[in-house]
Design a binder for these strands. Structure first.
Lengths: 174, 174
DNA sequence: GCTTGCAGGCTAACGGTGTTAGCCGAGTCT
DNA sequence: AGACTCGGCTAACACCGTTAGCCTGCAAGC
């Protein structure tokens, strides 16, 4: 057999394309199936349901963001500021994926194991091992990104300045 | 006539009950109508669509949270810490409403005028008028709340400590 | 008091969603 | 050759937001 996981990856690939090109509202079983030249019910021969496809995308997102964070921090002086910039860049580059990864409780049972921890690692390191500070920094970055993605800041708001203010505050606690 | 806005408020009341008691997934036109002893299409005689009902709930949420923030800060010494606690308390008391208020771009055209600004005021005041710091603090609080609501912190995580770390960091910048 | 008009219910329906049941053809193994 | 399984398919269900069109009861105008 052509390895059932390979089919799952093909489906995830199609789903990723739909998500990035057409947005979260378009991420439907019928739309994903259409990309693969089939009908929606056929997807269920390879995948348990929509949630499994989403979990696959979320796992991919964790791996990609972890790789981006690791690369950004490699040899950087100012870990916290560098990581903050990388975090924001990832979210703005893949807004639909970032939303999928964060806006609902994680389907942890369906995620590829270890993927969540790997993405969290650079944040804890950048906080010098202080987990409370790491969580505060993560929350700050996540909050900034979501408020920006949702257009919640006023039109003329200087977001770079707000990021700088937050990062500076957190840095002083190290 | 019995003032069309009164009807709208009745509908908003039913929607609020559905949202708080049964969750966001249950907030459907049919479900709201059922609470009022009617069928879904009849709602359209009083309201333009689901988005208008949601906007009503969001306006209510802004007013309620603003009132809570104002009361909490009245006569408090440590404005930032007090406001952070009030922010978290509001979100945890009304998780579905808080999600509705924040997880998508605001339908500003449908909101009651001024409600957004009123809710933002106490945050800016607590930051001593520094809008960049205020935005950073808002992002931190929003991020903490959403990560908590989504169960993203590890089971044993000391969230009070993380809140304290973030608030302490932001306070030093005042 | 009769008539007109309309506010505010209703049912039926459309196109969309995730999902299930059941059918069937092609390829593979015995 | 026969059986079995893989992986497509159509039809359908229950739900979603929304629209069209019908009908009833009440209120205002003459």
């Amino acid at each position: 057999m052509a390895s059932s996981v390979a089919r799952t990856r093909e489906i995830a690939g199609a789903a990723r394309a739909v998500l990035e090109e057409e947005g979260a509202a378009a991420l439907s079983m019928r739309r994903v199936a259409e990309r693969l030249g089939m009908r929606a019910p056929s997807l269920y021969k390879h995948v348990a349901g929509k949630e499994e496809i989403e979990a696959e995308l979320i796992s991919d997102g964790f791996e990609e963001s972890a790789a981006a964070f690791e690369e950004a921090c490699a040899g950087a002086h100012d870990h916290l500021a560098t990581l903050a910039a990388a975090y924001r860049a990832f979210a703005l580059a893949h807004p639909h994926l970032y939303r999928l990864m964060t806006e609902r409780p994680l389907p942890r049972a369906l995620l590829r194991p270890g993927v969540e921890e790997r993405a969290a690692r650079p944040v804890i390191d950048a906080a010098g091992g202080d987990v409370d500070l790491a969580r505060a920094a993560w929350a700050f970055a996540h909050g900034m990104v979501m408020l920006e993605l949702n257009g919640r800041f006023p039109p003329g708001a200087d977001l770079d300045a707000a990021w700088a203010a937050g990062v500076a505050a957190l840095q002083e606690r190290r």
